[in-house]
């Protein structure tokens, strides 16, 4: 790269600063709202910074006293973790063998394309029969039922990621192990899977984030604390019937913490996942 003029350097820094503000300002405001007293939030002109930080809403939402607003929120938190966790594990369980099969036997690859094509289906196209089917099985308003539905959102992505990962592991390594007398599953378990561990981790992160974010099915298929997830809880709070904007913001901050934490800490893995599908596609 050639030497840059001073003007260009200034321009780049100014743009970078602007970008940083655009990205940070809304998130920062969400947090400020969550610790501002209600009066500050309905003041005109608006108070941009609370005179006194008020963390009471966090305490309120995270309390576990039975039959309280906090209990409802923590139940939703637990449901979100359970549903996203189960769906992620199940997605990996089906994606690892399927991804390996497609990687090693490309002639069956068309079936994976079909699976991935289901991504185009809008959830509303499946919602009515799914609703009726889950009702018949008694799995409405049930974390297992919801996790089962989520599995089908996660599995196409994770399988595709796993396939890309297996593609980078030479078959020769597997062949050598087989020659030493190991059977297929031993080979997979001892040789291939350890090598593919970074991809497994990336797939798991993606799957978890996707499941955490889901709203539509959760809105339709859950009705109370037994299965209602965080996204639905927050949408309920934001529905315009709560006068304390700070409480809505607090719920938002709490729901955003896990994925944002994962995003920031695991960023390398996530970006490699984001691009491995894209670059090769």
């Amino acid at each position: 790269m050639g030497p840059r003029s001073l003007a260009f350097t200034i321009f780049v820094h100014a743009c970078a600063l602007l970008l940083a503000v655009v990205i940070l300002a809304p998130v920062a405001w969400l947090f400020v709202m969550s610790i501002s007293p209600a009066a500050d939030l309905s003041a005109k002109p608006l108070h941009w910074w609370p005179q006194e930080a008020d963390f009471s809403r966090y305490k309120l939402l995270l309390s576990t006293v039975e039959n309280s607003a906090g209990a409802a929120f923590t139940a939703a938190l637990r449901n979100s973790i359970e549903v996203a966790g189960m769906a992620t594990l199940a997605a990996l369980a089906v994606a690892i063998p399927a991804g390996w099969a497609v990687s090693r036997t490309p002639s069956v690859g068309w079936s994976l394309s079909m699976v991935i094509a289901t991504y185009m289906l809008p959830p509303v196209a499946l919602a009515v029969p799914l609703y009726m089917g889950l009702a018949r099985l008694g799995m409405l308003n049930n974390v297992f039922g919801l996790a089962l539905v989520y599995l089908t959102i996660l599995a196409p992505f994770t399988t595709w990621l796993m396939k890309s990962g297996f593609d980078t592991i030479p078959r020769e390594i597997e062949a050598a192990a087989m020659m030493d007398g190991a059977n297929l599953f031993q080979t997979l378990r001892r040789i291939t899977l350890p090598l593919a561990m970074p991809v497994v981790a990336t797939s798991a992160l993606f799957a978890f984030l996707l499941a955490w974010d889901e709203f539509f099915y959760a809105l339709l298929f859950t009705s109370d604390q037994r299965a209602k997830t965080l996204t639905v809880t927050i949408a309920d709070l934001a529905g315009g019937r709560i006068a304390d904007y700070g409480l809505i913001a607090t719920a938002g901050v709490l729901a955003a913490l896990p994925p944002v934490f994962i995003g920031l800490v695991m960023q390398r893995a996530l970006i490699s996942g984001l691009t491995s599908g894209g670059v090769k596609g």
Partner: peptide
């Protein structure tokens, strides 16, 4: 800054919508 770019993407859609509604 590159690390920050992940922030909006990681924020749950519903939280994002709520935030902008406010």
């Amino acid at each position: 800054l590159r690390a920050l770019m992940i922030l909006p993407w990681a924020l749950p859609t519903v939280v994002n919508a709520t935030l902008w509604r406010l």
